[in-house]
Amino acid sequence: MPRIACLHTFDSNAAVFEEALRATGLAGVSLQHTVRADLLAAAEREGRLTSDIAEETVAVLRGLSAQADAVLLTCSTLGPAAEAAAPDSPVPVLRVDAALAAEAVKAGGRVVVLCAVETTVEPTRHLFEAAARATGAAVSVEVVPQAWAAFKAGDPERYRELVARAAGAAKAAGATRVALAQASMAGAAALLPETERPLTSPTVGLAAAVAASRG
């Protein structure tokens, strides 16, 4: 039974990934959840992912690898730390948005990636632009105004509504694909008609982690 260790920066993301696991229908997979809200809080204070924060995240990821078949970092702001941890890890270490980026740019065209928090923008831009080089997709990364304030104020309904509104507007403006960069944004997809729903990271990221754990 594959054991996937998930490193979150918000408690609520544990439930998001348990729901994603049910949605994927992947049988016999066990999720282990570790929450380190302090890592994202530090990045927000600094305005970016600093080398010290990245090093601490790498240490946590490597620690989780000791009792798992794969490790999944679910915070997009900290994403580059997964790439730094992977080479010396005994098991695969993945960032949840890597599979999202590959899927979003696959068909080329204009891809709009929505973020809620400013610190996610640069790591997300680098990830998606790198993936887009193979397909010629044009990537635009945008922040949803007021969304993160709603999330941090404990108003998930408004958070999802703001994200869904921005995703719908991007699609209406001609985006080939719309992707939600942060795992916490996933619930917004259900507020839109099926034909307009953006791509979200939990299901594709989990599927990638399970596949990696099985070699």
Rank of each mutant, 00 (worst) to 15 (best):
R3M: 08
I4E: 04
D11K: 08
N13E: 14
F17Y: 15
E19C: 09
A23L: 09
A23D: 10
T24R: 02
T34F: 14
V35A: 01
A37S: 14
L39F: 13
L40S: 06
A42S: 13
A43L: 00
R48C: 02
T50K: 02
D52S: 12
E55K: 03
V58W: 04
V60E: 08
L61D: 11
L61I: 10
R62P: 12
L64M: 14
D69F: 06
V71E: 09
T74G: 07
L78S: 12
P80R: 09
A82C: 03
A86L: 04
A86I: 08
P87C: 08
V91F: 15
V91K: 09
L94I: 12
L100N: 05
A101L: 06
V105P: 02
G108I: 07
G109L: 10
V111M: 00
V112Q: 00
V112N: 02
V113A: 03
L114D: 11
C115D: 06
T120W: 13
F128Y: 09
R133E: 14
V139R: 00
E142Y: 01
V143I: 13
V144L: 07
P145Y: 11
W148T: 09
A149R: 09
A153F: 13
E157I: 13
E157W: 00
E157D: 15
Y159H: 13
R160M: 11
R160I: 00
A167H: 07
G168A: 13
A170V: 11
A172Y: 12
A173T: 01
A173S: 12
A175V: 05
L180S: 03
Q182T: 08
A188F: 04
E196Y: 00
S201F: 07
P202D: 06
G205A: 06
